[in-house]
């Protein structure tokens, strides 16, 4: 049957359009909405997982950094300690060295003093002896007189002592 329906009419087309709406609804629901919503949910989960991972990684990194900082601080402290110790030791050692050196120098000086004293005494003895000998010789030569050597010696010694005192 060819022809047209009325411009404004209600006929079988209404039922057809219900069927068409139902078909299109099923198509849109099953082939457009559910797969895309599923995909979006999947993507959301994935992105969430990625973000969680990133957060976790950041936390780990933070923790590690803290640890490292702490280690570094410790190391610095230790180094300071070591340095202080070394300084102290060095100071002690240097003081010791200086003291030793001073002691040694003192020793040397005192020994030198003793030696000088001894030398002086020996020289003095020698000079005294020489002088006494010379005096004795001169006296014996000048005075041809029998004189006991001991008396002479004593006499001269007294004289020299007197001289030495002056």
């Amino acid at each position: 049957m060819e022809g047209n329906t009325n411009f404004v009419s209600i006929d079988w087309t209404l039922l057809f359009q219900w069927g068409n709406l139902l078909i299109l609804y099923l198509i849109v629901k099953h082939f457009l909405f559910s797969p895309i919503q599923k995909m979006i949910a999947q993507r959301q989960n994935e992105v969430k997982a990625i973000y969680d991972d990133a957060e976790k990684a950041q936390q780990d990194a933070m923790q590690m950094k803290e640890e490292y900082t702490r280690h570094l601080e410790n190391a610095k402290d230790e180094a300071n300690e070591i340095l202080k110790n070394a300084n102290k030791k060095a100071v002690l050692r240097s003081e010791e060295i200086i003291r030793e050196a001073q002691e040694k120098a003192q020793n040397i000086v005192s020994r030198a003093d003793v030696q000088i004293e001894m030398e002086k005494r020996r020289a003095f003895e020698e000079v005294k002896k020489d002088i006494s000998d010379i005096a004795l010789l001169a006296a014996s030569k000048v005075v041809e007189r029998e004189l006991s050597s001991e008396e002479h010696q004593k006499l001269i010694g007294e004289f020299i002592d007197h001289v030495g005192d002056c």
Binding site: M1, E2, G3, N4, T5, N6, F7, V8, S9, D11, W12, T13, F16, Q17, N20
Partner: peptide, 26 residues
């Protein structure tokens, strides 16, 4: 002013007209 054209008729219940509207919807 005329309504949509009848493309074909289903021979049931005294003829169900299938109009342009329905075919375009398909």
């Amino acid at each position: 002013m005329e309504g949509p054209k009848i493309i074909f008729t289903i021979p049931l219940l005294g003829g169900i007209p299938v109009t342009e509207t329905v075919v375009n919807s398909w």
